[in-house]
């Protein structure tokens, strides 16, 4: 769906995106994860033909971008750096204008399509108030509605849950999963680990303009070869598993043993009550922190600069 080769963008001397090789496959829910200022938005803009690459190739839906971007954009729904709309018009009027602009669906069906899309993002009962009186969450939903207006094959979403409350985030996640199940590939750029972890099947991690890791979420969250045991009888377990315990705190033991089932029966056989046991996985956070530096919104004093 999206393939880039050596994608690079330079603003003057500033290297914003550096040799990025993205590979988003059909049916993916791809999480494009990186700290603020790591070049995510610039990549998204290049995919949509808004910003021109300094070097490298982009192929979206089998077409070269930006050369044939006009051919692929009708099949893409996008949300880039927050939603925007004409503040003095209603949400419906905004969607109607957006639909009328560019290659769009038939005019006869516009009204019903807009109503259906608004319904989908949870704005079905919206009145005719101008968008400037919408809350942030409502604007976000409206932006999403604009992206969904044409039932796209590919959704490119940049921070789609910004400004939403936990319930709204959940709703949008469910909506995206539903769309994905119906065949829409989702490319989601975010700096929120939990969002990506809960939604995505594949993850690309970007840091300071470079794609430092790209893999299936399952692979990234590989087993660590340790088990986590919760027990009220921590002391007895400690005696039993002496030497294997790497960390013990308040009834939670981290044990260097990958075979959870065997460990469990062994503990139980020796009369240790087990309230919970699971194989430890790397959290996405561990993965990200191990491959990225701090975000570019943090500016530390260089050693040589110190007075």
């Amino acid at each position: 769906m999206i393939v880039t080769r050596g994608l690079t963008k330079r603003y003057g001397p500033l290297l914003v995106v550096d040799q990025v090789d993205l590979d988003v496959r059909e049916g993916d829910r791809y999480g494009f994860l990186g700290p603020n200022g790591s070049g995510k938005t610039t990549v998204v803009r290049m995919l949509l033909g808004l910003v021109y690459a300094t070097s490298g190739d982009i192929t979206v839906l089998g077409q070269p971008v930006p050369k044939q971007v006009g051919k692929v954009l009708p099949s893409i729904g996008s949300l880039v750096e927050g939603p925007s709309a004409y503040g003095h018009l209603s949400g419906r009027a905004n969607l109607a204008l957006m639909d009328a602009a560019g290659k769009s669906g038939a005019r006869r069906t516009r009204r019903s399509r807009i109503a259906a899309t608004l319904d989908r993002v949870g704005l079905g009962g919206i009145d005719n108030r101008p968008v400037k009186r919408y809350s942030l969450g409502m604007r976000q939903r409206l932006g999403l509605a604009a992206a969904l207006l044409r039932t796209p094959k590919l959704l490119i979403l940049d921070e789609p849950t910004n400004g939403l409350d936990p319930q709204g985030i959940r709703e949008i996640r469910d909506l995206l999963i539903e769309l994905n199940a119906a065949g829409t590939t989702v490319f989601l750029s975010s700096h929120q680990l939990s969002e990506v972890e809960q939604l995505c099947t594949r993850v690309g991690i970007v840091d300071r303009g470079r794609l430092v890791r790209q893999d299936d979420l399952e692979t990234l969250r590989a087993l660590t070869g340790r088990s986590i045991v919760r027990t009220p009888d921590a002391d007895r377990a400690r005696e039993l598993l002496d030497g294997q315990i790497e960390l013990a705190q308040a009834g939670r033991l981290v044990i260097a043993d990958a075979d959870t089932a065997a460990l469990n029966s062994r503990l139980v056989a020796h009369g240790v009550r087990v309230t919970g046991i699971e194989a430890e996985r790397r959290s996405l956070e561990d993965v990200v922190l191990s491959v990225t530096g701090s975000g570019s919104d943090r500016v530390d004093v260089q050693d040589g600069d110190r007075p």
């Binding site: 803009r45 954009l73 009708p74 560019g102």
Partner: peptide, 14 residues
Amino acid sequence: GSGTLRYLLARPVG
């Protein structure tokens, strides 16, 4: 300024 330009161009409007 209102941020609608990027959405217009991504519609796409040439």
